[in-house]
């Protein structure tokens, strides 16, 4: 009994993917997944998802960002909402903000963030509010 909503998880940790999948499928979302940016991009091209949950650090420190920028610059995909999964606040504290200055200065490619490890209820409420927003014609 699918909601018909297609969510793509791009994340290199299989256990995390699995957890997210279980949580999302419990609310009848259709979940696809990819373990790296390249594979993820292929899946997007295959079928445009309604929402992407994207990990930042995969094989490189910024693989997730790279993909997010690539999508933003492509008119066909720029409107897909993306939740960026990140230990971002943690990373800020560790590396000092200067590391992210070059990114902070530019416009963000994504509008939603989710702290790692993802809290199931928070994830669901965020996903649902985004999907609802997508539903609303604008």
């Amino acid at each position: 009994m699918s909601t018909g909503r297609d969510i793509l998880i791009i994340e290199d940790d299989r256990d995390v993917v699995n957890s997210l999948r279980i949580i999302l499928e419990s609310k009848d979302f259709t979940v696809r997944y990819a373990y790296n940016g390249k594979e993820g991009y292929a899946k997007i091209k295959e079928k445009t998802p309604d929402l992407i949950i994207l990990d930042v650090m995969m094989s490189t420190d910024t693989e997730g960002f790279d993909l997010a920028y690539k999508l933003r610059d492509d008119p066909q995909y720029r409107n897909i909402p993306i939740i960026l999964e990140t230990g971002f606040t943690q990373k800020m504290a560790e590396d000092g903000p200067e590391r992210f200055q070059h990114i902070l200065g530019e416009s963000w490619p994504v509008s939603y963030f989710m702290e790692k490890p993802v809290d199931p209820e928070k994830l669901l409420s965020t996903v649902q509010s985004i999907i609802k927003g997508v539903d609303t014609p604008c």
Binding site: D13, D15, V16, N18, S19, L20, I22, I23, S26, G87, K116, P117, V118, D119, P120, E121
Partner: peptide
């Protein structure tokens, strides 16, 4: 993070 994701999934009763 993976451990905690899985724990949260279990604690949340999703499995």
């Amino acid at each position: 993070n993976a451990i905690r994701s899985m724990l949260k999934t279990v604690i949340g009763g999703y499995v």
